[in-house]
Design a protein around this nucleic acid. Sequence first.
RNA 1: GCCCCGGUAGCUCAGCGGAUAGAGCAGCCGCCUUCUAAGCGGCCGGUCACAGGUUCGAUUCCUGUCCGGGGCACCA
Length: 573
Amino acid sequence: MVREEISRLLQGAAAAAQQSGLLPQVTLPEITVEPPQRPEHGDYATNLALRLARSARMAPSQIARILIQSLPANDVIARAEVAGAGFINIVLRPEWVSAQLEGILAHGQRFVHNDQGQGRRVQVEFVSANPTERCHAGSGRAAALGDSLANLLALSGWQVQREYLVNDAGGRLQALGETILARYLQALGHPAEVPQDGYHGEFLRQLGQELAAELGDQIMELGHDAAVTHLARLAVERIVALHKADMDALGVHFDTWFREQALHDHGEVAATVELLRERGYVSEREGAVWFSSTALGDDKDNVLIRSNGVPGYLAADIAYHRDKFVRRGFERVIDVWGADHQGHVSRMKAGVQAIGVDPDRLTIIIHQLVTLRRGGEVVKLSKRTGNIVALADVIEEVGRDACRFFFLARSPESQMEFDLDLAKEESEENPVFYVQYSHARTASVLEKAEQRGISPQAWGLGAPDVAVLQHPAELALARFLLRYPEVIYDAAAQLEPHRLTFFAQELARIFNAFYRDCRVLPSERSPHDPPLPVSAARLRLVAAAQQVLAHVLGVIGVTAPRHMARVEEEVLA
RNA sequence: GCCCCGGUAGCUCAGCGGAUAGAGCAGCCGCCUUCUAAGCGGCCGGUCACAGGUUCGAUUCCUGUCCGGGGCACCA
């Protein structure tokens, strides 16, 4: 990465300055090198001198001057100067920047890789929607976030597993079975009521009808309890299949669909409660078994096993995480949860700690909820009444690419407002089309060059020399492309895939500016034709831009089309 | 009452210790004989909720207040 290169040079400068006595022997702070906000402040800037001022007891600008003088000889930096209160602004050598393009093209996709993970195993668990409803829009947000995060980690040297937890056990499953049974009976013309704590939505009513039509009255022979269990199992399988279809529609694929029931079946839940007991984190009162999470800093204790003998979700969740860390041996686990689960974070952390796992190995990303608007009004969400907007409908309306991009275009902690009408009406104005269009342009130029047999060989030029690239728009594009590995690195380190959508848009903007200012292919009669060597070098630049655009779209989960045809408006009556 | 996340341009949102706070959309004005105008240039638009504090420096960190969302079950 470019900034590492610069960082090394600065380190060398500081060491040299200390050796010669120009700077006192103080320990260096961590050197941060980043692109400044304003282009006139150079390609990269560092506040090293400012950070050093206090310990060195010298004026920042003086330190900056010394550092610049002490920079070792190199072919990277064209110019470094003191600016503002003591920043060091750095301008890269254009020849060096251009030469890096060949690196991008030669290394292919490997040029974005980094080794943060060092081959360690990480699991990203996301979506894990309860099998009592279709996926709603919030699941789309979790899907886009989790999948792109997994992509980022994979690029950063982690061995990644994508997991979806199927909550096919516990009290809600009972309510699901009761609900389905009631709907099933109703469909067959028998009197039945969905219980108060059941699911009253249209979706399960239809599922009950479907099952009634398929199974006839054979379920009625089972008796109530057996019927509830049987129907619950049937319903779970159908609903999970629908969830899977929704994920497929978004281009999200999981490595494992983990069944909670398996934990119960294999005695892992009971074993986990026993382990907690051995470690002294269990107390019994009011007929229930409690997890003493207050001992680990949580705000209150929580029930592990209810007084009716049934383990609650917390016992299952701790067992589940023990399974991830201990049995399956993940170094790190990342859970993506909606804001409605925010209250569970502290007890999950406490639970992991109680079973002897360093809680820092568990990261829980909370994304805020998605608010839907239709016709300018908030669509009220209620699982009880079943008035939800299904993810499948959103994908249908807006399209997979726009969905993925839109869901990822905000940081997880900000609430998202999804105006369905607007998203539909303005889909052509959606930023995703802008980025895709830029990619299509790169493809178009390269294709045209191929069709016309344009190549350095055809011109008798030999290998293209990117050092001829000198135009500001060319260099701006080249410099920006070189930032991509840095963006990937930071987004992975911070677990913030939404940065990629902003990078993609900015790259598209810079590419379009280049496209406007710098003609790539000779047209045979235009006075603006570039000389052939420039044309050849620009083709290399376009190829590099295409590679980066296609790559970032891939990480986001959006297709990179080679052609985009505008749908002509019908203007004739 | 307690806990979590927000409050930045008309709208949706980035930025989150540094140099004149950004983008998209909306609005206004221009640009198609030239590699796709789903494009490009320009203009308009901000007390970064409010009040204190820490700092050489705060939209960014801390405390408090107000506003919006979510959570505080022997549901998950």
